[in-house]
Write a protein that binds this DNA or RNA. Structure first.
Lengths: 255, 255
DNA sequence: CCTTGACCTTGACGTAACGTCAACCTTTAC
DNA sequence: GTAAAGGTTGACGTTACGTCAAGGTCAAGG
């Protein structure tokens, strides 16, 4: 028994284009090729195709499928690995759904879709750059979920706390005191405590997950200097440098 | 306040490439362009960017985001629509995970990854072609989950039932009787009952979800004729035609 | 023999949202 | 003056095919 490309496509429940693709990438060659170039497939090719489609439906990629069929990899191993990925995806989706639900509620409740206020108190803790990536990919997501899970009054309180911290820093910097001074170190302590209240950050995890709160804090300090947004929040670049040095000293001594 | 492309990228937690992309597709233009072609972004552009990134993190596509930002669409509406899609995805993932788990069990239990036996009794009920697509996209998935959820003995029983049905059809066709005859109609009835035992099909749903079991059965009859695999199962094309006509008559009278 | 229609071929572009060079120009800093 | 850092515009790669486009092959009918 032998079938043309359209015929097995129908039999197996796929398309001729897919068959040609599998031929191109070497995943499934036709069992015979006519003098005219036509592809013909036998029973054994059909069985292989069924296996391919089964694995594909389970979500495996074509390269992985090729490995499994070539016995370069055990099916159970590949499937187990894939299962982990699927479960991660499910988690991600669940969190995303929760986020969307909260956002819908907020928007329907009249809140403006992320108004300017957020820029003042929140986003500079939300700094998704190389430092954050170094300290965990989902830190941003967690922090974001936390922020949007808060009520308006909570947000206001948080914002004011952040602004008070910022203005205190500015005052200290302009007073010309040293980063080693008790006043500056007291501010640094407040700053770190404040950071600890943001879920998803190494500061909040308190070093439990292996990332260093010390490096995190000093890294943040570097960012404050490197980025003009922080400069604005802490009284210009000079202020940011003061904050950075104060934090660094504090981290060295206390973290 | 005004920032270069790298600067807002850092501030907002994204990359300069992304910003250039958004410029290219018109999603976010820089607020000013230098004589040298450099892109510069203002505070308002930053706010827009934050909104974009928020919506993107919620999983919305860039075109949808553009609509929301242009106020061509309410945010709540877009988010609600998106929520539906997310929930569908979650369902799909859950089923896929279940399927993978069962398959792992089966494979570890020593079962061969979809051996030839399946081709005999099962796969022709599994016909994922234009008819199946007409009757629901997840019919295939449901049927597949059902099949792989069965134990070896159940599979054997099913296979034998299918083969008995096939051989009875062949015998009737070769006897030269009419599709209207009582014998043929009795076989058609058995055939339909058999179809009803396959979850995910219109026959199993019994017309509850709005798709017609009648059209489904006659459509299957047409497939039996159109495809050589069925011919093999029902005693050649002549046999398949007999089956088709018998089913059609039965469907007209009883469904 | 010729036409028509169905089926086959290879080749190439499009998909979503950028990452990643490549080649080249501008600004900044020492 | 020069090197480092950062800017620009292409253009290709990513996944698994869908979808033309242009043209060759085959069976059936007039």
């Amino acid at each position: 028994m032998e079938w043309s490309i359209q015929e097995i496509a129908k039999i197996a429940g796929t398309t001729s284009r897919t068959l040609r693709h599998y031929d191109d990438i070497g995943l499934l060659k036709p069992s015979r090729t006519g003098h005219n170039g036509y592809r013909y497939y036998s029973q054994s090719a059909l069985v292989q195709l069924q296996r391919i489609l089964l694995l594909r439906q389970l979500g495996l990629g074509l390269p992985v499928i090729a490995q499994v069929l070539d016995r370069e990899q055990e099916a159970a191993v590949a499937l187990n690995g894939h299962l982990g990925w699927l479960e991660q995806e499910q988690n991600r989706l669940a969190r995303q759904i929760a986020s969307v639900r909260r956002t819908i509620k907020a928007v329907e409740g009249g809140e403006n879709l992320m108004a300017e206020e957020i820029l003042d108190g929140f986003d500079h803790t939300h700094y998704k750059d190389e430092v954050e990536e170094r300290w965990g990919k989902d830190a941003y997501a967690k922090g974001d979920a936390w922020w949007r899970g808060m009520g308006p009054d909570e947000k206001l309180a948080w914002k004011q706390r952040a602004q008070k911290l910022g203005s205190d820093w500015i005052a200290a910097a302009e007073a010309g005191i040293s980063p080693d001074s008790a006043t500056a170190q007291e501010l640094a302590k407040r700053h770190v405590e404040w950071l600890k209240d943001i879920p998803g950050t190494p500061a909040a995890a308190n070093g439990e997950n292996g990332v260093g709160i010390k490096e995190y804090v000093t890294g943040l300090g570097d960012m404050y200097v490197a980025d003009p947004r922080f400069g604005a929040n802490y009284g210009g670049t000079a202020g940011a440098i003061f904050v950075r040095d104060s934090l660094r000293t504090y981290a060295e001594l206390n973290l």
